[in-house]
């Protein structure tokens, strides 16, 4: 049986939606999807509709107070984009670590999000950057806070066969704001991060005025550590603060043991290391304005 029967290259959103309604599955870069079909994780679809050629999904531009990144923009374009570099450093750092160089030339942010894995690098960065997702169906388009999008591993609120992810809105960076992303991998075995973390913060003099923190894998869906964020607000960065944030973070996220990858203890330990790293990097960046 072939991996698919029909392959449609949609040139517009209405065309893609028509194919979706006919039962086709969306393919963007396809770097995850095609492997899962090949390896039998997902059944071969009858039809695939390729959305990479749709101009709207390929746009990367400032729209009002936001940076808009189309769901079909390949990761290497995101990494190389001056706009993204200026506004969303965490996303640049995350996208530059997804897959390998060749994969990044076709893989898309939309695919990374739609796959809905709890530790997808792009997802974690977008969460900290407070991104919103735009999707479209025959009913019209809607905007969803990214965090609301995820239901479980490989399972999102984007309605299969009805809805198409169009892109992401990220608030433009203002003075004294910055973000950072880091992850730790294991050289052997499963090619997934042991832990990744992204932070966005706003400096006010020597204190953190505001912060967003996301890490994965921290449960079945990627999430923000909002209690930990609360602890950060209004504080100075210090070892005591990091200890405290770490403690609070552990209460709200679930760091588990994954066979062949990491124990919960190792993840707990790394959470503090990464926390310190991303906070310091973002703090320093935010001080440059």
């Amino acid at each position: 049986m072939p991996l698919w029967k029909n392959y449609y290259l949609a040139q517009s959103i209405p065309e893609a939606l028509t194919r979706l309604n006919e039962g086709a599955r969306v393919i963007a870069g396809g770097t995850d999807l095609l492997l899962e079909i090949q390896q039998g994780v997902q059944p071969p679809p009858e039809s695939l509709v390729d959305v990479c050629n749709i101009p709207e999904l390929n746009s990367l531009e400032i729209r009002g107070k936001d940076l808009f990144i189309g769901a079909g923009v390949p990761l290497n374009h995101i990494v190389a984009s001056q706009l993204v570099q200026e506004n969303s450093q965490a996303l640049v750092e995350a996208c530059n670590l997804i897959g390998g160089p060749q994969v990044r030339n076709t893989a898309t942010l939309g695919g990374n999000i739609a796959h809905a894995l709890p530790a997808a690098d792009g997802t974690i960065a977008l969460l900290a950057l407070d991104a919103q997702a735009e999707s479209v169906s025959s009913e019209g388009s809607r905007i969803t806070a990214l965090e609301e999008l995820f239901l479980g591993p490989r399972h999102s609120r984007i309605e299969e066969n009805q809805e198409l992810l169009v892109g992401f809105y990220l608030p433009l960076r203002k003075n004294s704001q910055a973000s950072a992303f880091k992850r730790v991998m294991r050289p052997q075995g499963v090619a997934l991060p042991i832990l990744n973390m992204a932070v966005w913060l706003q400096r006010k003099k020597d204190r953190i005025a505001d912060a967003h923190l996301a890490l994965g894998p921290s449960g079945p869906t990627p999430l923000r550590a909002r209690m930990a964020e609360n602890v950060l607000r209004g504080e100075k960065i210090s070892q005591t603060l990091i200890e405290k944030v770490h403690q609070v973070m552990l209460e709200e996220v679930h760091l588990r043991t994954s066979p062949y990858r990491a124990s919960a203890d190792y993840r707990t330990h790394l959470a503090k290391i990464l926390l310190q790293d991303v906070l310091e990097i973002a703090w320093e960046r935010a001080g440059k304005d």
């Binding site: 698919w4 392959y7 290259l9 393919i27 396809g30 770097t31 095609l34 492997l35 090949q38 390896q39 695939l48 390729d50 990479c52 390949p74 290497n76 897959g99 390998g100 160089p101 060749q102 994969v103 030339n105 076709t106």
Partner: peptide, 27 residues
């Protein structure tokens, strides 16, 4: 490898290196 890991199948499409084992021909 036929699983987008080893890079042996790298070709250039519109100036970019891509993995031909995970690139639908129709694209």
């Amino acid at each position: 490898c036929n699983e987008a890991e080893c890079g042996s199948c790298t070709v250039i499409v519109d100036g970019e290196a891509v993995l031909a084992c995970a690139y639908p021909a129709a694209r």
